[in-house]
């Protein structure tokens, strides 16, 4: 199984890493999708859960290193939201590390690919096993 990963990346250092990886000809599996945001601080647990609801096996959040936020959002809100989402998916019975927060230096394409591959290798099973999702008529 190749894990389906959704990446939320900030527009700044996070995105620069993805860009650099592409420029350097590094690749990642096709089961990885990326959504670009202005800043990770605009993201909350609801969006991470939505990814799992739609079949993601893992969610990666890619952003700037601490104190590097272009908007001065140093309040750790994304850490808080990650913890919330981790607690919720644990209660839902999803096993293992499914949410990864990676804060990288600008243009670290190689670092991004290494972290992503490590994350994917750690995911052995689907978050929620696929099966009939539509209800039978009552």
């Amino acid at each position: 199984m190749t894990a389906k990963i959704l990446i939320f990346s900030c527009n700044w250092d996070g995105w620069s890493c993805i860009d650099s990886a592409a420029n350097a000809g590094l690749s990642y599996p096709v089961s990885v999708n990326i959504i670009k945001l202005t800043c990770l601080s605009s993201l909350n647990a609801g969006f991470m859960l939505k990814a799992f609801e739609h079949g993601a096996d893992g969610v990666m959040l890619l952003g700037c290193q601490n104190q590097q936020c272009r908007y001065g959002q140093f309040d750790n809100s994304i850490e808080i939201e990650c913890d919330k989402a981790r607690e919720i998916i644990k209660m839902l019975g999803v096993k293992g590390d499914r949410i990864m927060l990676a804060r990288l230096a600008p243009f670290d394409g190689r670092g991004f690919i290494e972290q992503l591959n490590g994350f994917i290798h750690g995911i052995k099973n689907p978050a929620i096993p696929a099966g009939a999702q539509k209800a039978d008529k009552p």
Binding site: N44, A45, G46, L49, K50, E53, L92
Partner: peptide, 12 residues
């Protein structure tokens, strides 16, 4: 709340 309750209900 960005739909977190809805997602939790659907996942359950």
């Amino acid at each position: 709340h960005s739909g977190v309750t809805e997602s939790v209900m659907h996942l359950m």
